[in-house]
Design a protein around this nucleic acid. Structure first.
Lengths: 196, 196
DNA sequence: ATGCGACGATAACAAAAGATAATTACTGTT
DNA sequence: AACAGTAATTATCTTTTGTTATCGTCGCAT
């Protein structure tokens, strides 16, 4: 079932929509169920969708020259996820998107969403809100790489997503922090022994 | 003198403005001259301006717990620079902004700019264009930290801003790359000796 | 229950990076 | 031209990270 509360929080502009518009909006929302391991968007794809995670956990990853998978994002319930290459730059996705748990997605066609927004000019506030959230998060993450050590980035990650440590393989978290899994394991040990 | 060509490239929506609007826009643009070393926006400031660099070079930097300056951005001619904290989040600037050369800025009051945009709804395309440019750049920079080694980040930086190596103290470039100046010097040597 | 595969921890070694200091190179000023 | 101040390089040592491999554990499937 769709949690209107959560949806409203993520898309605050929904409140400003007329009933007809909401109907239009929901008409374009599909629900997709995923099993652990399922890939729902692949490198090279151009599927123009925005995904809202109602349940479960998603990673996006990249395959480097050595054939290794490098995870660059982790997203979970009540978060949005999308290929920014597709949405914002009309390019093919650089990354694969994979469910790590039983996951339920609301699949929102971005072109339809854009049409709805075009027809309701005041909804642009909503779009801006959405983009600013991504921008805020991304700018902060970037500055963290410049200003913080790997260990401090890990501590910050722990604070912000304490649940994830028990839900996500550490090797993925290590990737997101820009370090190797072995190094993350050592950092964890270092912190643990220091605490005593 | 204001280079309308360059201005149009940075603010493509200007082309859609009426003469009156352009006048309004330019009325709110101040020109500011800076000498090397001048700080024109300080940590904690809330000056709501967007700056277009017509000439010169700007760095933004942060002072860490040890009192060291850490440069996190470098911007030069025909680029925009601003405190995102102020512009997008109504917070105080986390960083200082300093000219590294004789620099000329167009100072655009962001509130006035917003008013002009509000009154010309189609100009929102321009705003979106601007935000997407920042977002694109930031997302790419973030993924570079996750996916590339310091050496590869340096090589990419060289490719994208070959001029900067001769204009900017290397220690600032090192900061932007997330490494120490000493380490940058070693990377440069490693690359140089490898080439032969 | 057994076996398989994936994951995390650990070890050992190599490579790279941080910290600090000394030296050299460069710039601008007097 | 000499000097001072700053920046870049180099050197040394320490710390951290990368790489590779091994080992124990856990969960899952047969």
């Amino acid at each position: 079932m769709i949690d209107i509360e959560k949806l409203n929080h993520t898309f605050p502009f929904l409140k400003e929509l007329s009933a007809a518009d909401i109907f239009d909006f929901l008409k374009n929302v599909q629900v997709q169920q995923l099993k652990p391991g399922d890939i729902f968007l692949e490198t090279g794809s151009q599927k123009n969708n925005l995904y809202f995670i109602t349940r479960g956990l998603i990673r996006s990853y990249y395959i480097n020259e050595k054939g290794e998978e490098i995870t660059n994002r982790l997203r979970y319930e009540n978060q949005l996820i999308a290929s920014y290459e597709i949405l914002f730059f009309n390019q093919a996705s650089r990354f694969n998107f994979q469910a790590l748990e039983h996951t339920e997605l609301l699949v929102i066609n971005f072109i339809e969403l854009r049409n709805i927004i075009e027809q309701n000019s005041k909804l642009d506030t909503g779009r801006r809100f959405f983009m600013m959230n991504i921008l805020s998060e991304t700018l902060t993450a970037l500055d963290d790489f410049i200003l913080l050590s790997p260990e401090k980035r890990y501590l910050k990650f722990m604070q912000q997503h304490p649940e994830l440590l028990n839900r996500v393989p550490h090797k993925y978290i290590a990737n997101v922090l820009g370090i190797t899994p072995v190094s993350l394991s050592r950092i964890r040990k270092r912190i643990a022994t220091r605490k005593q």
